[in-house]
């Protein structure tokens, strides 16, 4: 569901607009809408989530209707429509990962971070959620952290603890 939690107007930086310009060049004349997904990724990498205001700005840039952006942003699971923690730990919990203990990893994260799936820790640093297959089944269980989507493989409770401590220090 698209819920408006932010009304503050935002303005894209020159650097970000330059990135968009590069992306649009990949497609034939008049097919600039194809750049929508790469642009949304770039916006989310910058702001951490896709606010309605940001999506409206993207629509404006691509010269398409805002609804065309909303319908895409709500379809794809990678796009966050609510603010998240600085680090979103996404644990794969499909088939092969489940076979080798993904659910235990999720339980451990919940205990360690003290927040439920989808919630943000008080310091604003972390949120976590289970996601469907990340195509890394041979290194299961795995998790990923955006916006670079680095994979952390063959997870154990100890590895999770170390990872969280390292991220806190960053």
């Amino acid at each position: 569901m698209l819920k408006v939690t932010e009304t503050q107007e935002i303005k894209f930086s020159k650097e970000l607009i330059a990135q968009f310009d590069e992306m649009v060049k990949r497609y034939p004349q008049g097919k600039q809408k194809s750049a929508l997904l790469p642009i949304l990724h770039a916006v989310q990498a910058e702001y951490g989530w896709l606010s309605p205001s940001a999506m409206d700005k993207v629509a404006e840039y691509l010269n398409i209707k805002p609804i065309e952006v909303y319908e895409v942003a709500t379809f794809y699971t990678m796009f966050f429509l609510q603010p998240q923690g600085k680090y979103v730990l996404e644990v794969c919990h499909t088939g092969p990962c489940q076979l080798v203990g993904a659910e235990k990893m999720m339980d451990h994260l919940e205990k360690k971070l003290g927040v439920k799936e989808g919630e943000v820790t008080k310091d604003g640093l972390f949120s976590w959620r289970g996601v469907e297959c990340l195509a890394a089944c041979g290194m299961a269980p795995v998790l990923q952290i955006g916006p670079d989507y680095t994979y952390y493989e063959n997870l154990t409770a100890d590895k999770l603890d170390t990872l969280i401590e390292e991220l806190k220090k960053k």
């Binding site: 097919k31 194809s34 790469p38 949304l40 895409v72 379809f75 794809y76 699971t77 796009f79």
Partner: peptide
Amino acid sequence: QPGGGAYICGEETALLESLEGKR
């Protein structure tokens, strides 16, 4: 071209829709 996290886009026509910037 990056996708957005949707298994269905592995289906070739869904992939093409996605590549056109749609659901």
